[in-house]
Simulated assay, not measured.
Amino acid sequence: MRVFLFVAGLGLIASAAEAQTSSYEAVERARYEACLQRVETDPENAYEDALAWKYDGGGWPALHCEARALVTLGEEEEGARRMEAMGMASDGGTDAMRVLVLAEAGEAFLLANAPEEARRAYTNALSFNENSAPLWMGRARAALVQEMWTAAEADATAAISHNAGLAEAWRTRAEARLELGRLDGAESDMNRARELDPADIETLVIRGRILEARRLGG
Protein backbone atom coordinates (compact mmCIF):
# COMPACT_ATOMS: atom_id res chain seq x y z
CA MET A 1 0.00 0.00 0.00
CA ARG A 2 1.34 3.43 -0.86
CA VAL A 3 0.48 6.86 0.41
CA PHE A 4 -1.32 8.96 -2.19
CA LEU A 5 0.40 12.33 -2.07
CA PHE A 6 -1.00 15.58 -3.35
CA VAL A 7 2.38 17.25 -2.92
CA ALA A 8 4.45 17.79 -6.02
CA GLY A 9 6.33 14.53 -5.73
CA LEU A 10 9.85 13.35 -5.15
CA GLY A 11 11.56 16.35 -6.70
CA LEU A 12 9.85 18.82 -4.40
CA ILE A 13 10.49 16.67 -1.36
CA ALA A 14 14.15 16.35 -2.25
CA SER A 15 14.39 20.09 -2.82
CA ALA A 16 12.87 20.72 0.59
CA ALA A 17 15.41 18.42 2.20
CA GLU A 18 18.21 20.12 0.30
CA ALA A 19 17.09 23.47 1.66
CA GLN A 20 17.57 22.16 5.20
CA THR A 21 21.26 23.07 5.13
CA SER A 22 23.65 24.53 2.61
CA SER A 23 26.22 21.81 3.44
CA TYR A 24 23.94 18.96 2.41
CA GLU A 25 26.12 16.80 0.17
CA ALA A 26 25.02 15.73 -3.30
CA VAL A 27 25.72 12.13 -2.40
CA GLU A 28 23.31 12.36 0.52
CA ARG A 29 20.62 13.90 -1.66
CA ALA A 30 21.06 11.01 -4.07
CA ARG A 31 20.82 8.57 -1.16
CA TYR A 32 17.57 10.19 -0.04
CA GLU A 33 16.03 9.97 -3.51
CA ALA A 34 17.18 6.36 -3.85
CA CYS A 35 15.69 5.50 -0.47
CA LEU A 36 12.29 6.97 -1.34
CA GLN A 37 12.30 5.23 -4.70
CA ARG A 38 13.19 1.92 -3.06
CA VAL A 39 10.21 2.30 -0.73
CA GLU A 40 7.99 1.80 -3.78
CA THR A 41 9.63 -1.44 -4.90
CA ASP A 42 11.29 -2.94 -1.82
CA PRO A 43 9.89 -1.32 1.33
CA GLU A 44 11.34 -3.84 3.78
CA ASN A 45 14.91 -3.21 2.70
CA ALA A 46 14.21 0.50 2.30
CA TYR A 47 13.15 0.55 5.93
CA GLU A 48 16.32 -1.24 7.02
CA ASP A 49 18.44 1.13 4.96
CA ALA A 50 16.69 4.16 6.44
CA LEU A 51 17.06 2.81 9.96
CA ALA A 52 20.80 2.31 9.53
CA TRP A 53 21.11 5.71 7.89
CA LYS A 54 19.26 7.34 10.78
CA TYR A 55 21.70 5.93 13.32
CA ASP A 56 24.53 7.05 11.06
CA GLY A 57 23.37 10.66 11.30
CA GLY A 58 21.02 10.72 8.31
CA GLY A 59 18.78 13.31 9.94
CA TRP A 60 15.52 14.52 8.39
CA PRO A 61 15.82 12.57 5.10
CA ALA A 62 16.49 9.27 6.87
CA LEU A 63 13.58 9.82 9.26
CA HIS A 64 11.24 10.64 6.41
CA CYS A 65 12.23 7.61 4.37
CA GLU A 66 11.86 5.38 7.44
CA ALA A 67 8.34 6.70 8.09
CA ARG A 68 7.36 6.39 4.42
CA ALA A 69 8.54 2.77 4.42
CA LEU A 70 6.45 1.99 7.49
CA VAL A 71 3.34 3.33 5.76
CA THR A 72 4.04 1.28 2.64
CA LEU A 73 4.56 -1.81 4.79
CA GLY A 74 1.06 -1.41 6.23
CA GLU A 75 2.07 0.37 9.44
CA GLU A 76 0.19 3.49 8.38
CA GLU A 77 -0.57 4.88 11.80
CA GLU A 78 2.97 4.44 13.13
CA GLY A 79 4.45 5.99 9.99
CA ALA A 80 1.97 8.85 10.23
CA ARG A 81 2.85 9.52 13.85
CA ARG A 82 6.54 9.67 13.01
CA MET A 83 5.92 12.10 10.15
CA GLU A 84 3.68 14.22 12.33
CA ALA A 85 6.38 14.35 15.01
CA MET A 86 8.91 15.41 12.36
CA GLY A 87 6.67 18.20 11.18
CA MET A 88 6.08 19.58 14.65
CA ALA A 89 9.63 19.16 16.00
CA SER A 90 11.63 22.24 16.91
CA ASP A 91 14.19 21.21 14.29
CA GLY A 92 11.56 20.30 11.71
CA GLY A 93 13.09 22.45 9.01
CA THR A 94 11.49 25.04 6.77
CA ASP A 95 7.77 25.68 6.62
CA ALA A 96 7.69 23.92 3.24
CA MET A 97 9.30 20.82 4.73
CA ARG A 98 6.86 20.81 7.64
CA VAL A 99 3.89 21.11 5.31
CA LEU A 100 5.13 18.18 3.22
CA VAL A 101 5.49 15.73 6.07
CA LEU A 102 2.36 16.88 7.92
CA ALA A 103 0.29 16.53 4.76
CA GLU A 104 1.70 13.08 4.19
CA ALA A 105 0.97 12.23 7.82
CA GLY A 106 -2.62 13.28 7.27
CA GLU A 107 -2.94 10.99 4.25
CA ALA A 108 -1.41 8.10 6.18
CA PHE A 109 -3.75 8.64 9.12
CA LEU A 110 -6.69 8.45 6.71
CA LEU A 111 -5.33 5.18 5.35
CA ALA A 112 -5.15 3.96 8.95
CA ASN A 113 -8.80 4.94 9.50
CA ALA A 114 -7.77 7.55 12.06
CA PRO A 115 -9.66 10.63 10.81
CA GLU A 116 -9.35 12.61 14.04
CA GLU A 117 -5.58 12.34 13.89
CA ALA A 118 -5.66 13.10 10.16
CA ARG A 119 -7.63 16.28 10.78
CA ARG A 120 -5.12 17.30 13.44
CA ALA A 121 -2.20 16.76 11.05
CA TYR A 122 -3.85 18.82 8.31
CA THR A 123 -4.71 21.55 10.79
CA ASN A 124 -1.07 21.72 11.84
CA ALA A 125 0.01 21.83 8.19
CA LEU A 126 -2.40 24.70 7.54
CA SER A 127 -0.72 26.67 10.31
CA PHE A 128 2.32 26.81 8.03
CA ASN A 129 0.39 27.41 4.78
CA GLU A 130 -3.24 28.41 5.06
CA ASN A 131 -3.55 29.07 1.31
CA SER A 132 -3.21 25.44 0.22
CA ALA A 133 -6.35 23.98 -1.35
CA PRO A 134 -5.05 20.38 -0.99
CA LEU A 135 -4.55 20.87 2.75
CA TRP A 136 -8.09 22.15 3.15
CA MET A 137 -9.27 19.17 1.14
CA GLY A 138 -7.40 16.83 3.44
CA ARG A 139 -9.25 18.28 6.40
CA ALA A 140 -12.53 18.04 4.50
CA ARG A 141 -11.98 14.34 3.73
CA ALA A 142 -11.24 13.65 7.38
CA ALA A 143 -14.41 15.51 8.39
CA LEU A 144 -16.49 13.41 5.98
CA VAL A 145 -15.19 10.22 7.54
CA GLN A 146 -16.16 11.58 10.95
CA GLU A 147 -19.58 12.63 9.60
CA MET A 148 -18.81 16.22 10.57
CA TRP A 149 -20.88 17.63 7.75
CA THR A 150 -20.71 21.32 8.69
CA ALA A 151 -16.93 21.13 9.08
CA ALA A 152 -16.60 19.27 5.78
CA GLU A 153 -18.66 21.94 4.03
CA ALA A 154 -16.54 24.73 5.52
CA ASP A 155 -13.24 23.07 4.63
CA ALA A 156 -14.37 22.27 1.09
CA THR A 157 -15.48 25.89 0.71
CA ALA A 158 -12.03 27.03 1.80
CA ALA A 159 -10.45 24.67 -0.75
CA ILE A 160 -12.67 26.09 -3.49
CA SER A 161 -11.68 29.63 -2.53
CA HIS A 162 -8.04 28.72 -3.21
CA ASN A 163 -8.64 26.50 -6.26
CA ALA A 164 -12.05 26.70 -7.90
CA GLY A 165 -11.01 24.09 -10.45
CA LEU A 166 -10.67 21.30 -7.91
CA ALA A 167 -13.49 18.87 -8.73
CA GLU A 168 -13.03 16.95 -5.49
CA ALA A 169 -13.77 20.08 -3.47
CA TRP A 170 -17.09 20.66 -5.24
CA ARG A 171 -18.00 16.99 -4.89
CA THR A 172 -17.11 16.98 -1.20
CA ARG A 173 -19.16 20.09 -0.53
CA ALA A 174 -22.05 18.57 -2.46
CA GLU A 175 -21.94 15.50 -0.23
CA ALA A 176 -21.77 17.58 2.93
CA ARG A 177 -24.69 19.74 1.83
CA LEU A 178 -26.68 16.66 0.89
CA GLU A 179 -26.18 15.27 4.39
CA LEU A 180 -27.22 18.64 5.83
CA GLY A 181 -30.42 18.54 3.78
CA ARG A 182 -29.45 21.46 1.54
CA LEU A 183 -30.42 19.82 -1.71
CA ASP A 184 -30.32 22.89 -3.96
CA GLY A 185 -26.78 23.70 -2.90
CA ALA A 186 -25.77 20.05 -3.11
CA GLU A 187 -27.11 19.78 -6.65
CA SER A 188 -25.38 22.96 -7.76
CA ASP A 189 -22.05 21.75 -6.36
CA MET A 190 -22.53 18.30 -7.86
CA ASN A 191 -23.17 19.80 -11.29
CA ARG A 192 -20.00 21.88 -11.02
CA ALA A 193 -18.02 18.79 -10.04
CA ARG A 194 -19.41 16.96 -13.09
CA GLU A 195 -18.39 19.83 -15.35
CA LEU A 196 -14.84 19.60 -14.05
CA ASP A 197 -14.62 15.79 -14.05
CA PRO A 198 -17.53 14.22 -16.00
CA ALA A 199 -16.29 10.64 -15.54
CA ASP A 200 -15.89 10.72 -11.75
CA ILE A 201 -17.92 7.82 -10.33
CA GLU A 202 -18.23 9.30 -6.84
CA THR A 203 -19.89 12.41 -8.24
CA LEU A 204 -22.35 10.26 -10.16
CA VAL A 205 -23.18 8.39 -6.95
CA ILE A 206 -23.88 11.69 -5.19
CA ARG A 207 -26.09 12.72 -8.11
CA GLY A 208 -28.12 9.56 -7.62
CA ARG A 209 -28.44 10.21 -3.90
CA ILE A 210 -29.64 13.76 -4.53
CA LEU A 211 -32.26 12.51 -7.00
CA GLU A 212 -33.42 9.91 -4.48
CA ALA A 213 -33.63 12.52 -1.71
CA ARG A 214 -35.80 14.71 -3.95
CA ARG A 215 -38.00 11.73 -4.84
CA LEU A 216 -38.55 11.07 -1.17
CA GLY A 217 -39.44 14.70 -0.61
CA GLY A 218 -36.22 15.72 1.12
Rank of each mutant, 00 (worst) to 15 (best):
G9C: 08
I13R: 09
S15I: 05
A17V: 12
Q20S: 13
T21N: 04
Y24V: 12
A26V: 10
V27K: 14
R29E: 11
R31C: 14
Y32E: 05
Y32H: 10
A34Y: 15
A34L: 11
L36T: 10
Q37R: 09
V39Q: 01
E40P: 08
P43C: 04
P43Y: 02
N45A: 12
A46H: 01
A50Q: 00
W53P: 00
W60T: 05
E66P: 01
E66V: 02
R68A: 08
A69K: 00
L70S: 01
T72M: 05
L73W: 08
G79L: 05
R81H: 12
A85M: 05
A85R: 06
G87H: 00
G87P: 00
S90D: 09
G92W: 06
G93N: 02
T94Y: 03
L102C: 02
A103G: 14
A105P: 01
E107L: 10
A108E: 01
L110W: 05
N113D: 15
E117P: 12
Y122L: 05
T123E: 13
P134F: 09
P134K: 04
G138I: 02
R141M: 13
L144M: 15
Q146D: 10
Q146G: 05
M148I: 07
T150L: 07
T157Q: 04
T157N: 09
T157A: 12
I160H: 04
W170C: 03
T172Q: 06
A174M: 06
R177N: 13
L178W: 03
L178N: 05
L180R: 07
R182A: 12
S188R: 07
R194W: 02
P198T: 13
P198R: 10
D200H: 10
I201P: 13
G208H: 04
G208S: 09
R209C: 00
I210D: 00
A213V: 01
R214F: 05
R214W: 06
